[in-house]
Write a protein that binds this DNA or RNA. Structure first.
Length: 772
RNA sequence: GCCCGGGUGGCGGAAUCGGUAGACGCUAGAGACUUAAAAUCUCUUGGGAGUAAUCCCGUGCGGGUUCGAGUCCCGCCCCGGGCACCA
């Protein structure tokens, strides 16, 4: 309920979100009830409720206390349309995840959470099956996002820097995943923002260097990151010493090196990196080959036409004592060698950045900080929480880079909690993903107002057994929630460090050839469907559309199938009731014993059906029943709703075809239908004479032996082509089947006059006669 | 560029420890019922040939392994998604 999504909608309608959101909640709640979602409404919560965000603010304070929250001025993603900063996770291809506007770079004072400290753990737990059973696509997205790289940090000494402004010697540390190529590092490149740029810049190069840095600073993040890849850069005039070759190499600056990754500096190996090769070619820098194709290791003298990037089988050349080693061996050997000489060490780098949680917006929980001229950023004492978000009229954001709350002096002028002198509240609010990063902890404990989550409740209910959501949250909500869990676990506040044991990503519904979404305007409003077809028809249709993880194609006509199915079931129940009225000794309030407990067969208790119709094949129906129970039971567990419903439809078709609507069969059917069509099932449960809720009745069980037939149809192939089918007793011997097959005319036609060279027999499935 | 997921009838989709491809549903066609329509019921519905029994072809494309491939292997194409001047 908090956040940009809601706030933008409110701005569009010109209504204060504080008024609009509660109205929408009423509507959502109604729709969720209508569709038969079974929730314990006593545990409903709203992130916009002070009783909730009090604890969101408390959470911020806990992270601050633990040193996991800090403030810094940083270049951040600024969305000029939404007029707020965005987390890296909210920027897709250089555009705002919400509105699609190209994101700009701004330098602002922001609050960050140290999620990077947890990078290795966030990665390692993904492989821990005892903690996490997640959709593969989701863990993969997280892996990519965390972006672990193994490599080495190598120190290039600055002793030999040329005549510049008398700067002291300065070492340049670089990160590389290819320490094996260090002998081929013929120049270095620093990010333009790198703090050592000035140290290496000679007087005669200063003008060019400064001009280049200014031009880069004015570029926005997008054109720098996803714009054209034409290399630009300037020479600083300085040199550093390659610790492997001992040779001095020129130091350049270029914007293809990013300050925020690795050390903000690289050793450039043009012979074995495409970007470095492009750069060297453009600026006429020397290219050295130090890795060679394993089969052509003697022919390395010709100049390289392109970077040779083979990372696996390549063999080292021109690398002193390391010549002849393969790339993987050389990585280890050279890293060790450099480490011994104090010029490097093995390191692991992550792509993940710290989580920026400041938002210059109105609709969120105020960050509980008071700035004091003397004491700096002072946390609001916990006893003073919540810091209430005031109701204001001018809640629209602007381009000033500060929140609308900064226009309200009466709100932000407060005394410093330490000295009592006038202070100023933090006017930014926190990212809405912080609200959702801990709500699973609040649900079981909604009625406690003196603690965010009750220890006993948490112990009983959490971590979450199964969590279902969209994959669009793979690197947002799901990553943040995991981080918050780890922090709270390490603070000793909860007993687990992974919040969601099992996660399954649902698919997306496609309508008119596009993913159903509000922005595309192809959304189906459930209300209309529910009033026309009924909630249960709608539920079954949605579940029947396609595999849960893949979504499906929503077509209005398709809904008639599930509706017809429910109508048929309704009539089956009607048949059962009518049959009972025909003088049968069924006790309406107790469930009939299941067949495996030795009860009489259904047929003996029911009237002979209409003589026009075939006699019910009770064995067939029994078999189908056991098969269906198995299929639906297993299908529910695996979220295979579409095939579970198909199995129920088949069961109904069998019951109808066999005219076998006996009460025990129909009752099993209704019970199995209950999770899919709860209202319908309850109603029919009552029609069948029961008082209580169907959800209090036991789930049917199946007997594996009764799911199979006594006779089986075996496909008969001749040389791999199916030519006929024979019906034999279950588990028949090969000889029996071969004999039956050889009597078959169609088989004969293909085996006549030919020698059967080989016989392949798969019991109960197939016989293959291979003729020569 | 790298890494995942997926390409099956007119449509949504079944079937993956290699073993009868197309379950279930939709659409369409024919018939029954009806004064008529709707609803319901019955039958047909991958393509081709044949009166028929039956045969040939068929799971994105090209090869391969196998008695047998939608399923496994190699090489491509297309669609969806993740990452991306990340060193």
């Amino acid at each position: 309920a908090f956040g940009i999504h809601s706030e933008n909608y409110a701005i569009k309608l010109g209504i204060n979100p504080a008024e609009l959101i509660p109205r929408n909640i009423v509507n959502f709640r109604r729709q969720l009830r209508n569709i038969g979602g079974m929730f314990d409404w006593r545990h409903e919560l709203s992130t916009t409720d002070p009783a909730y965000y009090k604890w969101t603010q408390w959470l911020f304070l806990q992270l601050l206390k633990a040193g996991k929250a800090y403030k810094k001025a940083a270049a951040v993603n600024w969305c000029p349309k939404d007029q707020t900063v965005l987390a890296n996770e909210q920027v897709i291809d250089g555009r705002c995840e919400r509105c699609g506007t190209t994101v700009e770079q701004r330098t602002l004072e922001q609050w960050f959470f140290r999620i990077t400290e947890y990078a290795d753990r966030l990665l390692a737990n993904l492989d821990d099956k005892s903690k996490m059973d997640w959709s593969e696509s989701t863990t993969l997205a997280q892996r990519n996002w965390l972006g672990r790289s193994e490599g080495a940090e190598i120190v290039f000494g600055g002793e030999v820097v040329g005549a510049h402004r008398g700067a002291p010697s300065a070492d340049i540390r670089v990160f590389t995943t290819r320490p094996d190529t260090v002998f081929g590092a013929t120049f270095m490149v620093l990010a333009p923002e790198h703090p050592l740029v000035d140290a290496f810049t000679t007087l005669d190069r200063k003008g060019d260097v400064d001009a280049y840095r200014r031009s880069v600073a004015s570029k926005d993040l997008v054109s720098r990151k996803v714009g054209e890849r034409e290399k630009t850069g300037v020479f600083t005039g300085g040199h550093a010493l390659n610790p492997a070759s001992g040779k001095p190499v020129p130091v350049w600056i270029a914007d293809y090196v990013l300050m925020e990754y690795g050390t903000g500096a690289i050793m450039a190996v043009p012979g074995h990196d495409e970007r470095d090769f492009d750069f060297a070619r453009k600026f006429g820098l020397s290219v050295a080959q130090v890795v060679c194709h394993p089969e052509r290791s003697e022919g390395a003298e010709a100049p390289l036409e392109a970077a040779y990037v083979d990372n696996h089988q390549g063999v080292l050349v021109n690398s002193g004592q390391f010549d002849g080693l393969t790339v993987p061996d050389a990585k280890r050997a050279i890293t060790t060698w450099l480490a011994e000489r104090g010029a490097g060490k093995a390191v692991v780098t992550y792509r993940l950045h710290d989580w920026c949680i400041s938002r210059q917006r109105y609709w969120g929980p105020p960050i509980p900080i008071i700035y004091c001229g003397e004491h700096g950023a002072v946390p609001v004492p916990e006893k003073d929480l919540p810091v209430i978000l005031p109701l204001i009229d001018d809640f629209k954001p602007d381009d000033t880079g500060v929140s609308p709350l900064a226009r309200h002096e009466s709100w932000y002028h407060v005394p410093c909690p330490v000295c009592g002198k006038q202070g100023r509240r933090e006017t930014d609010v926190s990212d809405t993903f912080l609200d959702s990063a801990w709500y699973y902890l609040r649900y079981p404990s909604t009625e406690f107002d003196d603690r965010p989550f009750d220890a006993e409740r948490t112990k009983k209910w959490l971590p979450v057994a199964t969590y279902i959501g969209g994959n669009e949250h793979a690197v947002l909500h799901l990553l943040y929630s995991r981080f918050i869990s780890m922090v709270l676990h390490d603070l000793g506040l909860i007993h687990f460090d992974e919040p969601f044991k099992r996660f399954r990503a649902h698919g997306h519904i496609v309508k008119d050839g596009a993913k159903m979404s509000k922005s595309r305007g192809n959304v189906v409003v459930p209300d209309e469907f529910i009033s026309r077809w009924g909630a249960d028809t709608f539920r079954i249709y949605l579940m029947f559309l396609g595999p849960f993880q893949e979504g499906g194609d929503f077509r209005d006509e398709g809904v008639s199938g599930p509706r017809r199915f429910l109508d048929k079931v309704w009539n089956l129940v009607g048949d059962t009731i009518r049959d009972d009225k025909g003088g049968h000794s069924r006790t309406p309030d107790s469930r009939l014993p299941t067949p495996d407990s030795g009860s009489p067969t259904p047929d003996s208790r029911l009237p002979t059906p209409n003589p026009r119709l075939p006699t019910p094949d009770s064995r067939l129906v029994e078999m189908k029943r056991h098969q269906t129970v198995r299929k639906v039971t297993e299908g529910l567990e695996e979220l295979r709703y579409n095939t579970s419903i198909a199995a129920l439809m088949e069961f109904v078709n069998t019951i109808r075809a066999e005219n076998a609507a006996t009460s025990d069969v129909v009752e099993d059917l209704i019970v199995m239908l209950a999770p899919f069509a709860p209202h319908f099932a309850e109603e029919n449960w009552e029609r069948l004479g029961h008082d209580g809720s169907i959800f209090d009745s036991p789930w049917p069980t199946w007997d594996e032996r009764l799911t199979v037939e006594d006779t089986v149809e075996i496909a008969v192939q001749v040389s791999g082509k199916t030519r006929s089918r024979v019906t034999v007793a279950r588990d028949a011997d090969q000889g029996v089947v071969v004999e039956a097959a050889q009597r078959d005319a169609a088989v004969r036609r293909f085996t006549e006059g030919k020698e059967v060279r080989k016989v392949v027999y798969v019991p109960n499935r197939l016989l293959n006669l291979v003729v020569g």
